[in-house]
Write a protein that binds this DNA or RNA. Structure first.
Lengths: 214, 214
DNA sequence: TAGATTGTTAATCGATTAACAATC
DNA sequence: TAGATTGTTAATCGATTAACAATC
């Protein structure tokens, strides 16, 4: 059986999408520094990429630059944020309030990018009721009710591997459409459900690149 | 100026290298389950990939399968581990013992993959001297001396962005050849040093994919 | 044997890079 | 104007996929 290649918004390739946040970071920094206009060449130098790649990537956002000048910083930020949908609020929860979950809760950059973390969940009674970085830890039993009541769209899984599939099933049945999976397990959605997006954050891939190349 | 495309061991592409850990995980699980021989088709099904891609990827490790049968589980594990250099010990330190650093210290899977975490470092006096997951937190002042004394090859950076470049410079000057960068800063090695490998673990890329596709 | 699977060679697909006209 | 930069079209490069002979 052949699965169709995933098609992305407006024809942007996966590698392009993955580079956009780095551009946004550079351009936001430029704005902080009071710079009004920035060229693709400058962004490329900053990130050690080729200028042509930066221009091609930025083009997917629909931004129009001015020859000889570059891109208006304010407009470029808006274009990148809009393309990434980081100008909209995404209501999210984190399941698991161990060290990784807490680290993610404290990742303030998320807020700038539209991610609204509204709750954490844990099955450890010692943690339930506590607050980390201002976000309350709820009992994992309340997952389904909370998701439905608060129209949570994204669930971030920072739990032990052996709990991952069960939690995945629970949150999907409760209506979550996106899962950000920080466990090493390949998750499966319940049969018959097709409109769920699962993004795996794979730390061992990075380690593989590091050890093979060194 | 044109930078040459990075060439990897035995011609394995970057995407291939990044998939290998997933294969290893599946095959190790098979071994646990008492399975002696596994086919590329089976691995592909498990990971929702195409069988041809799995076979091509496994080929880079030099493993030879048997038509109609598959690969000997024990041999395949050995081949993957050896290709990834996960059969060797890599002496590593973690700089930063906040939640992320502590989460990484507690990531037991690393040990199975040759990563020997020997120390953590922090500049918070409250944390110095404590132990997390059996690993002692040292004063960041001791970084250089420790690296040189213990021939540390890998430094994992789990520190605030604004400290990242300084720590990078310190550990590189002390002799570290590999940096695993969990901050969002693009790091630069000091002038004249060329044989340092920096791998950036980019969480915002994953979030970008998630929000663009949803 | 029949049929499943490997591994090689070729074809396709897609991403990156190059070339260059347009432009400010 | 001269020169830097954009953005488009074409070329190249590399990764994935297909086809199929070999094999157990």
């Amino acid at each position: 059986m052949k699965r169709p290649r995933m098609i992305n918004r407006k024809g942007a390739s996966l590698p392009t999408i993955r580079r956009l946040p780095a551009y946004l970071q550079v351009v936001r920094q430029a704005e902080q520094d009071g710079i009004l206009v920035i060229s693709g060449t400058t962004i490329a130098e900053e990130l050690e990429l080729e200028p042509i790649q930066v221009r091609k990537d930025l083009a997917v956002t629909g931004i129009a630059g001015k020859p000889r000048v570059g891109y208006v910083v304010k407009d470029l930020i808006a274009a990148l944020e809009h393309f990434l949908r980081w100008d909209q609020t995404h209501t999210a929860i984190i399941v698991g309030s161990g060290h990784l979950g807490t680290a993610l809760l404290g990742h303030t950059e998320f807020r700038k990018n539209g991610l609204n973390l509204v709750a954490a969940f844990d099955n450890d009674p010692v943690k339930v009721g506590k607050k980390f970085h201002g976000i309350k830890v709820h009992d994992a039993q309340e997952l389904t009710a909370f998701i439905q009541k608060n129209s949570v769209t994204l669930a971030i899984l920072a739990i032990p591997t052996h709990e991952a599939q069960e939690v995945c099933t629970t949150v999907v049945l409760a209506g979550v459409k996106c899962i950000w999976n920080f466990t090493s397990l390949k998750l499966r959605v319940p049969d018959g459900i097709t409109d769920v997006l699962i993004q795996k954050e794979d730390i061992s891939s990075g380690y593989a690149v590091l050890s093979v190349r060194s």
